[in-house]
């Protein structure tokens, strides 16, 4: 039981930490763009900034996927889910989480191949940054892994507990009231 509780808090910490890391990537994008402007105004060169901003963009998106899922930010069409009785809705939810989990682990598997290809064929950024691309791509993969784990986590809960753990944040979701 203690092991399970440990796992639970480790997982929750991971989702949150990835989200925080993603938000730091957003700040990094802001800083990079400001640096680019400052460099231009004082006549200096800051090479590779668009590329770095792009890498941070990908990292920010993927690392935040799980956090966004847990907070109900990802969009879905819930007409059917709301229309059917709860016990059927549960099985539709199982189907959705199963599809989502499958798609995301598929992304993880091919993401792993993708990063390995980048190392193997020595794929280097074509911009002025000359970054070996496997480095920024690894953050995409890491985010995909965390998202896949989160979806699996919800699916298991749904199967054994009868409900997933998505908490729709009302302040986040609806800006009324």
């Amino acid at each position: 039981m203690a092991a399970l509780r440990g796992l639970r808090s480790a997982l929750d910490f991971t989702y949150l930490a990835a989200g925080v890391l993603a938000s730091l990537c957003l700040i990094a994008i802001l800083v990079l763009i400001v640096l680019q402007m400052l460099a231009r105004w004082i006549g200096e060169v800051a090479p590779g900034i668009p590329e770095y901003a792009g890498y941070f963009m990908a990292a920010a998106s993927f690392l935040a996927f799980a956090n966004a899922l847990n907070r109900g930010s990802h969009i879905r069409v819930s007409i059917l889910l709301n229309a059917v009785p709860p016990h059927i809705a549960r099985w539709i939810d199982v189907w959705c989480f199963a599809i989502g989990t499958a798609v995301m682990w598929y992304v993880v598997y091919y993401g792993w191949r993708f990063v390995n290809f980048s190392i193997m064929i020595n794929d280097i950024s074509q911009g002025q940054d000359r970054t070996p691309l496997w480095i920024p791509q690894s953050f995409m993969l890491l985010g995909a892994v965390i998202m896949a784990i989160a979806l699996t986590d919800h699916l298991i809960h749904l199967l054994f507990d009868g409900k997933h753990r998505i908490q729709r944040d009302l302040v986040d979701q609806s800006f009324g009231e």
Binding site: L26, I33, G54, M57, A60, F114, M140
Partner: peptide, 25 residues
């Protein structure tokens, strides 16, 4: 799968996309 990842990476790591989170922020 390989095609999918190439496309996802290319679409996600785009410089022009960075305006979106900033305007949202």
């Amino acid at each position: 799968g390989d095609v999918m990842l190439t496309t996802i990476w290319s679409a996600s790591s785009s410089w022009t996309l960075t305006a979106l989170p900033l305007f949202i922020w």
